[in-house]
Design a protein around this nucleic acid. Structure first.
Lengths: 162, 162
DNA sequence: TCGATATTGTTATAAGATAACATATCAATT
DNA sequence: AATTGATATGTTATCTTATAACAATATCGA
């Protein structure tokens, strides 16, 4: 298996989930960040799967779970989680996915299935490197990058063919 | 100069513009595509600068130029132009920028200035390659990619420092 | 000219995101 | 424990981005 998340492969998801959560808890303690209830719930919702969820989907989940909330609650929690690298925003589909490379995720890249919205995150790719060479040449100061590929995962390819 | 557009460097923009327009016209003739008035106007608006414009900014430009239109007009024209590779959508800022590498633009990558919204497009970078290796390993079929870096261009860095 | 296809015009609304401000909680110090 | 400054939440309203739906029109080949 390449150095990617297990999004499109079988794996022990319970372990995957609890490892990521434990990492976030530890990081928050170490850095004095407050993993409040809203933030933690949002993170847990995202950790349940390797699927990207829109802010309003997260919000709906919060509401059905008895945490009655308005949009800003979800967006603020997501902003916090994204800011600290615990969650990534997948720009292409305006959705959010939990980071599954706790502590090893500098420049994430994503494979996004347009059918099931599963998102695989890769960490060995260094896709923005040629870009940084060009950036340096024109004195452009890169602050953040997005690398996203959309397509069909294996199982959704089968279903389309069916 | 690296193989990027001249967005952040001085250049003969009139030539830049007319070359791109001529290419689109030729391509449309060759492929039997219809470069209608709305589509052409939208393209010309985007070609005026290396700045990315939101759909509603384009729409406003259309309206001030006497082409009274509602949002779908702009979105349809943009969809057409994007579909055929004449314009790119910069997902990170939900905005559109004309392609300045007529005919040589397979997997574009962008440097986006968060201050002036100028967008430089590079074509020599092949940033999605490591990603495609991973994709192949998990039988993920990539259909389209985005590579975007946000930051500050040289002149906006100077201004922030001032 | 007919008919199929593609495009435009228009209204309405869906979906995504944030501004603004009041209230509450936390945590460090007195 | 009380004070206080900073941080986070609750809530309303609104803004921005994008599309659904359908009628009217234009284009092009048979």
């Amino acid at each position: 298996m390449p150095e990617t998340t297990a999004a499109f492969t079988e794996h022990d998801h319970a372990a995957c989930q609890s490892k990521a959560l434990a990492y976030v808890i530890a990081q928050c303690e170490a850095k004095g960040l407050r993993l409040t209830e809203a933030r933690r719930r949002v993170l847990e919702i995202l950790l349940e799967s390797h699927t990207a969820l829109g802010a309003y989907e997260v919000l709906q989940r919060l509401n059905t779970e008895g945490y009655s909330a308005q949009p800003p609650i979800a967006y603020r929690a997501l902003d916090f989680l994204v800011e600290h690298g615990f969650v990534h925003k997948v720009e292409r589909i305006s959705a959010f996915v939990a980071c599954h490379f706790p502590g090893q995720c500098n420049a994430p890249a994503f494979l996004i299935c347009r059918s099931c919205r599963s998102v695989a995150e890769t960490r060995d790719a260094r896709p923005a490197e040629p870009l940084s060479k060009d950036a340096a040449a024109m004195r452009f100061a890169i602050e953040d990058t997005n690398v996203e590929a959309e397509g069909l995962c294996q199982s959704c390819q089968s279903e389309e063919g069916a």
